[in-house]
Amino acid sequence: MTTLDSSKEIQKNNSEVNETHEDFRMFGLITFLIADGMTFAGFFAAYLTYKAVNPLPDGAIYELELPIPTLNTILLLVSSATFHKAGKALLKDKNSDSQKWLFFTAFLGIIFLICQLFEYFHLPFGLTDNLFASTFYALTGFHGLHVTLGTLMILIIAWQSRINGGRLTSQNMFPLEAVELYWHFVDGIWVVLFIILYLL
């Protein structure tokens, strides 16, 4: 059908454009991350406001232990570094090294999520116990969702780097760079979250 023809043409043309203009895809991703960051900003603002004007009622339990989240902070920071290694390796065309680093990063992500779940099950309060409990779960849960997504994407690109002549090569770094940027972003959010939720 004619209509399909014309849209195919456009499609072809645009994938060509995309091939040559790496940077505007990155630009788009950065814009998206800013937007995503604003969602977190909204949550943080709500939490801080609650903290300032809605003191805990008597008898409400909202106690946080530090060990697990501290471990999680370290895990994520290390995973950022290992991701960086993966990129370096790919740049030098050491695809299998790169893949190892990627798997290791994903592994750290999964450990993070397990620790998070472990913490959830051992906290003395539940989702609906009080305002702070709810906000705590909303924030960490929303962040956890980001980590889950990130881990999945890392696994996908790790898989791709294995395919010979596949999508992920030193000539086509974009998927890796994009996921890496996203992963650093998620780390950054965690650090802010850790400070606001656990340390303040």
Binding site: A46, V53, P57, T128
Partner: peptide, 18 residues
Amino acid sequence: TGFFNPVLGGNVVVYQHL
């Protein structure tokens, strides 16, 4: 949950700000 539900200790004005 009780983010904006005063019965559960929430704050309705926070919703309005957001």
